[in-house]
């Protein structure tokens, strides 16, 4: 079962990618399965930075390929 932070991230990504939340399973690949391009990726990063008041280093972005990794990343950087 997802907690609040997981639900927040899932909803945020769902809105930006215009993908139903049901399709956003933790391991669905943003780039291969959801056709996320550089424009969508920067939108997710900018929304994420605004919400959690953090800066995501550019080199970290390619490492975040799915919702599960994004949730894990969030937990790490927000403590």
């Amino acid at each position: 079962m997802m907690n609040n932070i997981e639900n927040e991230i899932r909803t945020m990504v769902s809105i930006i990618l215009e993908v139903p939340v049901e399709k956003l399973t933790p391991d669905v690949d943003f780039f291969k399965d959801l056709n996320v391009d550089s424009l969508k990726a920067i939108e997710i990063v900018a929304a994420f930075e605004k919400k959690y008041r953090i800066i995501v280093p550019e080199e970290d972005i390619p490492k975040i390929r799915n919702l599960g990794q994004l949730i894990e990343y969030t937990k790490n950087v927000t403590g």
Partner: peptide
């Protein structure tokens, strides 16, 4: 500037 990357910008 909102966010700048090498391949995209807002």
């Amino acid at each position: 500037k909102v966010k700048f990357l090498d391949s995209a910008a807002i």
